[in-house]
Structures are given as structure tokens and as C-alpha cells.
């Protein structure tokens, strides 16, 4: 019986040594990874703050104003250019000038399908609804 215990003890000892070895080297490897990642993060952060500074430098109002003056026709906003909702006029009804003209000339209103080739588009919806019937 004691020999069995000895045997178990030896296996446990060897096993734990192997395990410890592995854990130790894994830890070293991981902490190297952590250090590397930390370094990378710090580098990225530095890069971000540099880019932030550069972004703001490029977007500084003075520079934008110079560019706007050089490259666009826009001028400074005047107060009369600002309007409230109430001052915006309603959308006007669209005027079909050609249709009106045709009517005044006494032409047929495009009700008959064969009138003009120009009215083909008007025709399309009606024929299209006929086309794919419920055969399927």
C-alpha cells in the first residue's frame, strides 16, 4: 500500500513540475504580449492625439475662412438671409405648361392611348397592370 502512495506521489511531483514549467513559460509569454500591447496602445494613443491636433490645425477657423474665400463665392451670412418656418412659403402647385398649352389649342387630352408617342409614359401604368395577370 505505501508503495502505491509513493508511486502516486512521484507522478504528482513530475506532473506538477511539468505543469509549473508550462504555466511559467506561458506567463512569461503572456506578460511579454501584455507589455507589447501596452506599448502599441501607447503608440496608437500618441498617434491619435497627434492626428487630433493636426485635424484641428486643418480645421482652424482662420484657415477655413481663407480657403472659403479663395475657393468659393460664399460671403458672410447676413441677417436677412435667415428666415423662420412661418416665413417659408408653401410649395406652389406644379404648373403643367405644355399640357395647358395643348388644352388651349384644343388638342385631345391624352386620354386616348393612341394619341401621341410622347404619351407612352402615361400609358405604361395602365398596360403594366394588365400585363402580368394572375396566371402564375
Amino acid at each position: 500500500m505505501p508503495r502505491i502512495f509513493h508511486l502516486i506521489a512521484v507522478f504528482v511531483l513530475v506532473g506538477s513540475a511539468v505543469y509549473l514549467y508550462r504555466v511559467k513559460y506561458e506567463t512569461i509569454y503572456l506578460s511579454e504580449q501584455v507589455a507589447k500591447l501596452k506599448r502599441d496602445i501607447a503608440r496608437e494613443k500618441d498617434a491619435i492625439s497627434t492626428l487630433h491636433a493636426e485635424w484641428q490645425q486643418l480645421n482652424s477657423p482662420e484657415r477655413l475662412q481663407k480657403l472659403a474665400h479663395a475657393n468659393s463665392q460664399l460671403t458672410t451670412l447676413r441677417v436677412h438671409q435667415i428666415a423662420g418656418w412661418a416665413e417659408i412659403p408653401d410649395r406652389s402647385t406644379t404648373v403643367d405648361m405644355i399640357g395647358d398649352k395643348l388644352l388651349s389649342l384644343g388638342e385631345d387630352h391624352p386620354s386616348s392611348p393612341s394619341a401621341h408617342s410622347g404619351h407612352a409614359r402615361v400609358k405604361v401604368p395602365s398596360t403594366a397592370s394588365e400585363g402580368p395577370s394572375n396566371e402564375n
Partner: peptide, 8 residues
């Protein structure tokens, strides 16, 4: 230290 807006 950087002041990206210059004299602003």
C-alpha cells in the same frame, strides 16, 4: 504643447 488654432 500644441495650440492648433494659432492666435485664436
Amino acid at each position: 504643447r500644441i495650440y492648433p488654432n494659432g492666435s485664436e
